[in-house]
Design a protein around this nucleic acid. Sequence first.
DNA 1: GCCAACGTTGGC
DNA 2: GCCAACGTTGGC
Length: 156
Amino acid sequence: MAYWLFKTEPDTFSIDTLKKQQVSCWEGVRNYQARNMMRDQIREGDEVFIYHSSCKDVGVVGIAEVVREAYPDHFQFDLQSAYFDPKSDPANPRWVMVDIAYRRHLRLVSLKKMKANPALDDMPLVQRGSRLSIMPVTEAQWEAILMMTGQFPPVV
DNA sequence: GCCAACGTTGGC
DNA sequence: GCCAACGTTGGC
């Protein structure tokens, strides 16, 4: 089992939205590096930190679990969607998505505190200029972030 | 709203 | 295949 971090803008889709829906597809990833991770590495049962970006309280806010592995993101063919991609061929879809299930909220672990924790220095998240919307998290990083919530060990 | 950093595009 | 221009991301 592997660990990941998914970024989302809470104005569009927040951890609260996910809790309400319980299960949601993770559409709209339009970056090749992130796509390749979804397609080649993200597996059912993997655990995911949900991270809120571009908002007042930037940081890790909860945990989800992958419940469906990569399949074509149909929004790439939806003319009405902001995620429409005219260059994607329906016979060979360019973009994929996975489904995740809500697990729980966490007390906010702010980006500021993550940047101040040397255990997280290798995360793309805290590195200058990183724009990866999906990134791997090592077990050590996962546990370090859980520790920072003050809620460790986690209640399953 | 600003703007630095980054990925993508397209002319050559 | 280079690289300048452009659009986007995302913290602040």
